[in-house]
Design a protein around this nucleic acid. Sequence first.
DNA 1: TGGATATTGATTGTGCACAATCCCCTGCAG
DNA 2: CTGCAGGGGATTGTGCACAATCAATATCCA
Lengths: 232, 232
Amino acid sequence: MHETEEAVYALITSVLLSGQLAAGAQLVETRLAAVFGLSRERIRKILQRLGHERLLELVPNRGAFVASPSLTQAREIYEARRILEGGIAGRLAGRLDDAQVQALTAHARRERAAAKAGDRARSIRLSGEFHLLLSACCGSEFIERQLQELVSRTSMLVAFFESDTASSCACDEHEQIVEALCEGDAAAAVRTMHTHLSLIETRLRPHAQPRALADPGVVLDKAWRVGRRARR
Amino acid sequence: MHETEEAVYALITSVLLSGQLAAGAQLVETRLAAVFGLSRERIRKILQRLGHERLLELVPNRGAFVASPSLTQAREIYEARRILEGGIAGRLAGRLDDAQVQALTAHARRERAAAKAGDRARSIRLSGEFHLLLSACCGSEFIERQLQELVSRTSMLVAFFESDTASSCACDEHEQIVEALCEGDAAAAVRTMHTHLSLIETRLRPHAQPRALADPGVVLDKAWRVGRRARR
DNA sequence: TGGATATTGATTGTGCACAATCCCCTGCAG
DNA sequence: CTGCAGGGGATTGTGCACAATCAATATCCA
């Protein structure tokens, strides 16, 4: 019983991150309760959790709405990533052990392969995971959690703002970062990280996302059925 | 009605941060509800919030307990601060405007005054606020929130682990950091920040804190009455 | 017609009662 | 004396019913 709650949370999260819901759309508690076959209280707990992670905006007495970040907020998120990941790079420079270096280079290789194969979805996913992998090397559960949240919010931004013709992810830059870290050149690693994130940021376009006008209940219901079939 | 809830949250937080409660002590929902005159559900919401911030440990079907960090966890928190605040220092170097520099130096001056006057409590509080002030200079609400949480948890650690004869806070180092930031020397600023935090960390002593065996209900009740008197 | 105000309908917020869970303690057997 | 099974008591978890709130529409008066 407890595990379905987790599954619902994961499902809503993935639907939000993939941008299938219009920004600002309301997620009505009773509706979701009916769709997922959970009590309203359980749904409520899930929504609050998503609100805390800023994937939803919780308005008192009004309800839960799909976060609709402004370009200003988007820039703030990238700035936060520059600060946090700059700190990570600076701390990790010259401190990676062999296993970590191997894991990072292997990951970069996989990214390169996906990019070469033109698998855009996989490429995007791997690109995000690279940053999380790097944060995991710090050995700080706190740092990992924080970056996880930032990466999630970035995914949502990309879904809303990135032009569809986005160039392939810059796996070169990931390799450069690993290289700088191995050489122990902290300043270079931080610099590379900063420019890397700034480059990603410049890809955002304020195209007034006209997609995804569907009813959230319908979208989630469909996703739930599909997942349910796959789950057995 | 809503504001008393906020007041209760603030009160419990301050009591937790000041180390007046024994690590591992349970906060029973019904008890707190009686003390504060709130319904159990309101108390529950407050406890979950505190659990999310890791000031309490929430155990399913068991309850909320005062966090009792191990020395290992303590080190992890300081490591996280090195990473995050290193990132802040690296990002802020050479980018502070006049108003910010002025605010920071003014704060450092106040710290120095408090240290010279031997006002230990004020000195500690100001020392923590310096770091928050620095994070506010980033203009990222996210970064500010994260550091807020880390500083809170640090305060709790200090309450549990720091020797009572702790030397006065190193306001010299704070001034050094501001100086490096003004000069735009990112590497130096990061280095100073790292050593500063490491120095604070070395002050932790695993003295098996034997204090504060009082019942949480009693302590909170007393604090509540005192605050209530002061509030009008 | 215009604008302020009352009404309504849908949605969230909360108190309460009861269910589920867990720890501790007791009793018993080996 | 130790290990284990089970009961009892205290505490947390949750479904439900109703209260509070808000936006949108309807109503009324000038």
